[in-house]
Design a protein around this nucleic acid. Structure first.
Lengths: 224, 224
DNA sequence: TTATAGCTAAAATGAACGTATGAATCATGA
DNA sequence: TCATGATTCATACGTTCATTTTAGCTATAA
């Protein structure tokens, strides 16, 4: 085989990088740490990916391509079944956020590790990764936003965009799972294994998101 | 005066560090960048604060001491007026998150810059800063959690903790304000100045948070 | 077998990092 | 006025960083 060793090295680097970027952030993770954990030579990253930044992009691309394609597939499916009629908001929210959390239960897709890395990186704005993620998400966001506009014709579009934003925040922060304040709240949550907790997280999060999405519209103070 | 030059240098360093940590993260901000922006000598940080890590802590302490004291004061006030009866959830949520966002409108308290730094750092878990923030928030979180338990006696405590967590996420992510996906959503938001946007953000966020907090309880799939 | 391309190994490069040092400068109290 | 302690300054130190280089290894194709 002409690439047996090579693909193995690439995958090992990507797996190690995913875990380490999640744990220590991009700047906090050195090439020596990555190649050490992957048990490959220091130069292998630059040979296979070109640079550290390109490696980070590849870590994301490996998972996001699948995730966002799946999200589009789900939405296509929903819209096909609805035959032109507006979708229920709960279905749209589940298509976007449910698909994400369900991916985390599939270890072959990176499991919770990638989920945490994603949540963390969405609030960590290195310029080059922002541009990359924006492009990677462009189509999906556009489609889901449009679906929400259609599903909630009486709600001002600006309000929907804001609430979509809030939902993204609640989800990202939750899946980052390493927030500083978790130490404080003496976590009387069930100590089941990660998959069990993930099972119950999805309904919990979904209730919260839908409650927020359908909340009464805010009233602004007069500042004319 | 025995400290004129000194306090000025300290403040300039803290201001510069606050802005730069916000923009580039902790690891991404070098001492040379900080001291350059503050127009002080490179050695000044180590002289006045001891180390880069201690500087970061001081950046937070300067704002958080006031913020969390104010949160406690507000809660004390509410509970005193209620005279032992449970508080309305909206008042509790406003006491916690409203106080935070109102602080951002006071430029003397750091304004949006500190708000963004806080939002960003809450998901950026350097071990030492996690421990510091956990300690800094300990009392406030405990008090507000207890108030919510009392205000919502029919809701399981675990559920309240989760939803408090989701609220923290939505808020942190929003105030970080630098999330990667903002580029995507062609932001048809009013182009008013920062304070105007902040004026309307608070009611918007509050509606969302309360909607989520009061949402119907989730139903879990049977996995017995 | 030999040439070639794909890949790995080990070492070196130059830049940037946080921190430490000792001299210079300043304000202050006797 | 002058000695003193606080602060600022320029500079150097020892690491660690991402990346590059050069040589060597392995497997396929002619």
């Amino acid at each position: 085989m002409t690439e047996g060793r090579s693909t193995d090295t690439r995958e090992r680097i990507l797996d190690a990088a995913e875990t380490l970027f999640m744990a220590h952030g991009y700047d906090g993770t050195s090439m020596r740490l990555i190649t050490g954990a992957a048990e490959v030579n220091l130069a292998a990253v630059n040979y296979h990916f070109g640079s550290k930044g390109a490696l980070l992009q590849e870590v994301f691309r490996r998972r996001l391509d699948w995730l966002n394609a799946e999200r589009l597939r789900v939405l296509d499916d929903l819209e096909r079944k609805a035959g032109g009629k507006p979708l229920k908001p709960s279905l749209i929210v589940d298509g976007y956020f449910g698909t994400l959390l369900r991916m985390a239960q599939d270890e072959a897709c990176g499991g919770v590790t990638f989920l945490r890395l994603l949540g963390r990186t969405l609030t960590e704005p290195s310029d080059f990764i922002r541009a990359f993620l924006a492009n990677e998400y462009k189509e999906v966001i556009e489609r889901y936003k449009a679906a929400l506009f259609k599903a909630l014709p009486d709600v001002p579009k600006a309000e929907i965009v804001w609430r979509f934003h809030f939902m993204l925040g609640a989800t990202s922060y939750t899946i980052a799972g390493t927030d500083a304040l978790r130490l404080v709240t003496d976590w009387q949550i069930e100590d089941a294994d990660a998959n069990d907790r993930l099972d119950r997280l999805l309904p919990r999060l979904m209730s919260f998101l839908l409650g927020g999405l359908r909340a009464p519209l805010p009233e602004f103070p007069d500042n004319a």
